[in-house]
Design a protein around this nucleic acid. Structure first.
Length: 482
RNA sequence: UCCUUCUUAGCUCAGUUGGUUAGAGCACCUGACUGUUAAUCAGGGGGUCCUUGGUUCAAGUCCAAGAGAGGGAGCCA
């Protein structure tokens, strides 16, 4: 038979050229049979939907069909016809089927049924082949693409901050050390310490915990930049919201004050959510239905207020609440759970807000995203701009329902003296920070920036509950399989 | 790292106050069925009850330690 060019299944399903010959390739999701005919659901990743292949035993050899099970890969040539069944509009009546790769049903772990996410986490190499994960990773692509589109459209430059860093002053968490030294035979200095001058870079180096400091350097010349890359934290965090390796978007903007910063963050989040609504409809609908099914098993009070798509639409249509830390503490002190002593951690000015406090503000009190600003300086990083009150800094955290902090940022301290004083106060090694300080010495300007956790955005957009399920291969304590 | 729950067939799970041969549904194999929608119906094969040690006449079940996983917390994005 003459070769026909493959058409992706997403396109075939939208076609109405009945009678035309098509070639589709993909992986079998289910096989159903009766006496004279078999039905194969075929998926190639181009859409959440499968194409139904009809294999008439008078045309397709039954021994060939016996080699086909869930998971097998096929190339099918046939004619596109209007479906005689009710579940789909079009289907392919097979004229020839080539088995590209068999999948032994005794060994292939995926079945045409619901698997637990925990089970699929251990089969991360195959979970792309499930509806849920193919939807999640198509959306992940769309979000990454939309981020570039958003910033490019605003004249931001995509800046590549280094992955390996020689400064340990970033202060965002425990770091992974990078070395080529032989750990069994470490070179030592005279006083018995490791001699890093013998290491690859001639000094102690780590994987980055943030591209922010380098991002600031670029912003103070290019104007508006963003980074988007992997970030590494060696924290022993075992939660559904933390990874040891995750992706972060960090815009830095010259001449932006804290309000400009908040405006940008809000506009960006709404743009991204709207992009998903406009471009990932089928996948969102699938994930929404999946969540609704899952929630049927939960007691009423644990169910979410809105279905996924309505929740996303709500975010795009409503302004975020903007609130100073001091006001937030007031609200919390006067709140019912506090009056009734239901908070585990007591509320008073100066504390770092705990999950339970953030959740109260976002999920109970306002029921919408909240941007908190002007935190006490003691609980925030050294580079944040100090307010005139001497007590607070121009930090901003964007809090989302169900997720908590999705963005953390601030206006940056542009005064050389104030920044240096803060570095001294916090005991940061000044010699490592000379380059950062020089930007404030030479032509300093007010500027701002923030960090968006890409996987936390993914949690929100997909409605998934565990961050390990929105990144292809999760790196967490005691787990770097695949 | 802390608190808590869990670990039984390939998957999801049941297994009573400790008791004799450990079960179900799905998946797989065989057969039936005139186009199915996670097809259906009948039959069949399939077990290191997470590991180690202990208590007991007897442990899937009780106790201890360890491993792994889930949920919550801390750290944060």
């Amino acid at each position: 038979m003459e070769a026909i060019k493959r058409t992706k299944i997403g396109k075939v399903l939208k076609s109405e050229s009945y009678g035309s010959s098509v070639c589709v390739k993909g992986w079998v999701r289910t096989k159903r049979g009766s006496k004279n005919v078999a039905f194969l659901a075929l998926n190639d990743g181009s859409t959440i939907h499968n194409i139904q292949i009809v294999a008439d035993f008078e045309i397709i050899d039954e021994t060939l069909l016996s080699r086909i099970h869930t998971g097998a890969s096929l190339s099918v040539i046939g004619s596109l016809i209007e479906s005689q069944g009710t579940g789909q509009k079009v289907e392919v009546k097979a004229e020839s089927i080539e088995v590209l790769g068999e999948a032994n049903p005794d060994e292939y772990p995926l079945q045409p049924k619901k698997h637990s996410l925990e089970f699929l986490r251990e089969k991360a190499h195959l979970r792309f082949r499930t509806n849920t994960f193919s939807a999640v990773f198509r959306i992940r692509h769309a979000m990454a693409f939309a981020i570039h589109q958003f910033f490019n459209g605003k004249g931001f430059y995509y800046m590549h901050s280094p992955i390996i860093t020689g400064s340990d002053a970033e202060g965002a968490g425990e770091m992974f050390q990078v070395t080529t030294l032989d750990l069994d035979k470490l070179p030592k200095t005279e006083d018995g310490k490791v001699d890093y001058s013998k290491d690859f870079f001639g000094k102690l180096t780590n994987l980055t915990v943030s591209g922010q400091l380098e991002g600031e350097l670029a912003a103070l010349a290019l104007g508006e930049i963003y980074t988007f890359g992997p970030t590494f934290r060696a924290e022993n965090s075992n939660t559904s919201r933390h990874l040891a390796e995750f992706w972060m978007i960090e815009p830095e903007m010259a001449f932006y004050d804290i309000k400009d910063n908040m405006d940008l963050a809000e506009e960006m989040l709404k743009y991204l959510v709207q992009y998903a609504l406009d471009n990932c409809r089928d996948d969102l609908e699938f994930l929404q239905n999946r969540l609704l099914e899952e929630e049927k098993l939960k007691p009423q009070n644990e169910r979410s207020d809105l279905p996924l798509i309505e929740k996303l639409e709500f975010v795009t249509k409503n302004d975020f609440v903007r609130l100073a830390y001091t006001e937030a503490i007031d609200i919390l002190i006067k709140s019912k759970p506090n009056q009734k002593g239901q908070f585990q951690y007591p509320v008073e000015w100066g504390i770092d807000l705990q999950s339970e406090h953030e959740r109260f503000l976002v999920e109970k009190h306002y029921k919408k995203p909240v941007i908190l600003t002007d935190y006490p300086k003691q609980i925030k990083a050294f580079y944040m701009k100090q307010n005139e009150d001497g007590k607070t800094v121009r930090a901003m955290d964007v809090l989302f329902p169900g997720i908590g902090e999705i963005i953390g940022g601030s206006q940056r301290e542009e005064s050389y003296e104030k920044l240096k004083a803060r570095i001294d106060e916090m005991g940061i090694h000044e010699a490592d920070m000379w380059w950062f300080l020089e930007t404030r010495k030479f032509g300093t300007v007010p500027h701002s920036g923030y960090g968006l956790g890409f996987e936390r955005l993914m949690l929100f957009v997909t409605g998934m509950g565990n961050i390990r399920d929105v990144i292809p291969f999760a790196r967490t304590p005691k787990n770097a399989e695949f």
